[in-house]
């Protein structure tokens, strides 16, 4: 379970998150929607452990443990996963080398044995097939020369391999065509098992047709301003964010 309590975050002099509260229960799929510039990506980065931000106050608890003091790699080993809005290209590092380094690094942090190469290769092949990722892509340097859709699918492949407890998908639908969204969504839906929780960050309701959330939160000016069920997404699609932006601005 992820609990964000009264989280205030700034970058430089600018306050981006302002006393944000959010709970994502075990097995829950929560969506965060909101206009540009309200701090959605910042929230995902702060949970994942990007060092550029200053946490002024508040806590981020994963299964009751405050993860804010941990490095990004420790958080990953604890089960936090961030699918990036813009997955990063890493020239010279072969995709398979990277995937194996990531998987084994997490296993080592958790005190588990490293995975053998044949077992690892089999696991990657199976996951890649489900996501329609071609074998030759796995031989290239990570994300280098990948199309937008291939990059997003590669992030979902990593999620499938790393089996996180808390997966955050930051605008995974942006830049994807309908077919790619469907493939990515199917990949995510297959992982909706047991205690695994998801936090989907998106501008549009469209992704939520494919990944149906349990909860929808509206974020504006650095905080959650409304929480509802999946029908809230439809309402937002119809009316836009205007009401929320003006309501919080008027406060």
């Amino acid at each position: 379970m992820l609990e964000v309590k009264n989280l205030t975050v700034s970058i430089g002099d600018r306050k981006i998150l302002d006393g944000l509260n959010l709970t994502v229960k075990d097995g829950e799929v929560a969506a965060i929607m909101g206009p540009n510039g309200t701090g959605k990506s910042t929230l995902s980065y702060v949970i994942a452990g990007k060092p550029d931000y200053t946490v002024e106050s508040g806590e981020v608890l994963l299964d009751g443990e405050n993860i804010l003091e941990m490095g990004a790699d420790e958080r990953a080993a604890k089960g936090v996963f961030l699918a990036f809005q813009y997955p990063v290209e890493i020239p010279g590092v072969a995709t398979m080398t990277f995937l194996k380094a990531a998987l084994n690094a997490q296993r080592r942090q958790r005190g588990e044995d490293e995975m053998t190469t044949p077992a690892f290769a089999k696991k990657v092949r199976e996951a890649a097939e489900l996501l329609g990722i071609k074998n030759e892509i796995l031989k290239r340097p990570l994300n280098v020369g990948f199309s937008g859709g291939e990059k997003k699918r590669m992030d979902i492949l990593q999620m499938a391999l790393l089996e996180p407890a808390m997966a955050i998908l930051d605008e995974t639908d942006s830049g994807l065509d309908i077919d790619a969204i469907r493939i990515v969504a199917e990949g995510v839906n297959k992982l909706r098992t047991g205690k695994r929780s998801f936090l989907l960050i998106t501008h549009y309701q469209r992704l939520l047709n494919y990944i149906v959330p349990d909860t929808v939160h509206v974020m504006a000016q650095g905080k959650i301003v409304r929480t509802g069920g999946k029908e809230l997404a439809l309402e937002l699609e119809k009316n836009g964010y205007r009401d929320f932006v003006t309501a919080t601005a008027a406060e």
């Binding site: 990953a76 996963f81 690094a105 790393l162």
Partner: peptide, 19 residues
């Protein structure tokens, strides 16, 4: 690039070495 790798569980030292 370093953060991307760390967010996947790779330590800073190993991420630097890979890069």
């Amino acid at each position: 690039q370093l953060f991307y790798m760390q967010a996947r569980g790779i330590s800073r030292a190993e991420a630097e070495s890979l890069l």
